[in-house]
Amino acid sequence: MSEGLNIIVCIKQVPATTEVEIDPETGTLKREGIESVINPFDEYAIEESIRLKEKYGGIVKVVTMGPPMAEQALRDAIAMGCDQAILITDRVFAGADTWATSLTLARCIDKLKPYDIVLCGLKTTDGDTGQTGPELAEHLGIPHICYVNRILGIDNGVMRVTRALDDGVETLESNLPLLLTVTKEINHPRLATLKGRLLAKRAEIKKFTLKEIGGDPKEYGLSGSFTRVIKVFTPSPPVSGEVMEVDPEIAAQKIFEKLVEIKVI
C-alpha cells in the first residue's frame, strides 16, 4: 500500500454486436463481418482502475483469457491507461464455462501477487452471466462486492463503496484485497489518447500458456467445466392471437370487451 495500489483488471473480448441471428435454413449463427471489441461493461472497470491509480498511485495490470486475437483488447486497454497486459492463451483453455474461466484467471492472478484490488465488469455482452467475477473472488480466497456504482475511498487498507441492489443502495466496507464488479453508473470511460495509442502499439503483451499458469490440463477449458451447452436456438415466437385493422371506436370496444372478459376492470 505504501507504494500505491496494485490493481488488476479483468476484461474479455466480445463480438461488437449482440444482434446475432440464426439462419433458419442451416440453424447456424450468422456472423459475417462482426468485429471484436472490449466487452462494453469492462471499459468501466478499466476506467475505474485508472482513476484509482491516478488518485492513490500504483500500477494497473490488465488480464484477459482468449484466443491470440484478444491481444487487441489488451492493447486498447493500455491505450486507455493500463500499465501492463497479460494474455492467457492456450488451446487447453478452450471451451471453458465460468467456473473453469474463473479458475484459470485465478491461477494467473495468483502469479501477479501482491495485489490489492481486482476489478471486473458487471457481465459480458455475449455470455451475459455476470458469474466470472464472484467465482474468481472465491477461487482467489478474497471477498467480492458486485454492482459497485461508487468507490467512496480507501483508508488504511479498508475500502468503502456503494452498490446498487434491486431494492436500494448499500454502503459497504471491506479490507483489501477485494474484488469488485462495477456498473455503468460508476464513471464515463475515457477515450484513448494518441499518445496512449502509440504506447499501446509498442507495449509488450505477456503471454501465459498452460506452462506459465501451471496445473493439470484437465482442470481447464472444457474438461475443467461443469456445465455443457447442449443446444443453441432462436427463441420461438409465441402463438399470436387476433390482429385487427378497424376504426378506433370498434378497436376500443374490442379492447374493452377483452378487459371485462379477463376480469381486470
Partner: peptide
C-alpha cells in the same frame, strides 16, 4: 438467453 436474448442456450451440468 445469451447474446442479449437473440439466442437461447440449453445447458446441463452432468457430472
Amino acid at each position: 438467453p445469451a447474446f442479449g436474448g437473440n439466442v437461447m442456450a440449453t445447458i446441463i451440468c452432468p457430472d
